[in-house]
C-alpha cells in the first residue's frame, strides 16, 4: 500500500473511526461521503463516529495458505465482525486457542501491527480483534 493512502486511512485503521449519517443516523465503516439510503439529503451531514470496537463474530475463516507477509502467522483467523454499532468489519483475530472462536463469540478491538513494507518501508498499524474474555480481569 502506498504511504499516502495508508496515511489517509490512519484514523479509521487506528481508531475504527467511521461516519454516521446526520439524516438517518446509520453508522458506516469505513467512512463514506454519502449515505447510500439518504443520498443527497446526507450530503454535508455525514459526521465522524468512532466505533466502540466491541462486537461479535458473524463468520470467520482460518487461514493456512497466506500472502507473503502473513506467512509467519499461519494459521490465523480472519473474521467478519458485526460491531455493536452496526457496521460489519473485517479483521484478524489474535490470541486465540483452538475452538475458542465461534460464530457469536464476543470480541473487542486491539491495536497491533498489521504489516510492514519490507525492512525499509513504513510499518502499518491498525485494529485487530480478540475474544472478550481474554480482556477481562
Amino acid at each position: 500500500m502506498e504511504v499516502p493512502r495508508f496515511w489517509r486511512e490512519t484514523r479509521a485503521r487506528y481508531n475504527l473511526e467511521g461516519v454516521r449519517c446526520g439524516n438517518c443516523e446509520k453508522v458506516f465503516f469505513p467512512p463514506r461521503e454519502v449515505c447510500p439510503d439518504c443520498h443527497r439529503a446526507s450530503i454535508g451531514r455525514m459526521e465522524k463516529f468512532k466505533l466502540s470496537g466491541k462486537g461479535e463474530v458473524y463468520s470467520f475463516s482460518t487461514i493456512h495458505s497466506a500472502p507473503d507477509y502473513f506467512k509467519d502467522e499461519v494459521p490465523y483467523i480472519v473474521a467478519l465482525i458485526k460491531t455493536d454499532e452496526g457496521p460489519m468489519v473485517t479483521g484478524q483475530i489474535v490470541d486465540w486457542e483452538d475452538g475458542e472462536v465461534q460464530i457469536g463469540t464476543r470480541v473487542e478491538s486491539v491495536f497491533r501491527k498489521i504489516s510492514e513494507q519490507g525492512k525499509h518501508g513504513i510499518i502499518q498499524y491498525g485494529f485487530k480483534f480478540k475474544a472478550v474474555r481474554r480482556a477481562l480481569k
Binding site: 509467519d72 502467522e73 489474535v94 490470541d95 486491539v110 491495536f111 497491533r112 501491527k113 498489521i114 510499518i123 498499524y125 485487530k128
Partner: peptide, 16 residues
C-alpha cells in the same frame, strides 16, 4: 511479544 506486538502497540494499549 507476538509477531504483531512491538513497542508501539504496547504503548498504545497501555495508554488506552
Amino acid at each position: 511479544p507476538y509477531l504483531d506486538e512491538d513497542t508501539v502497540t504496547i504503548s498504545v494499549e497501555a495508554a488506552r
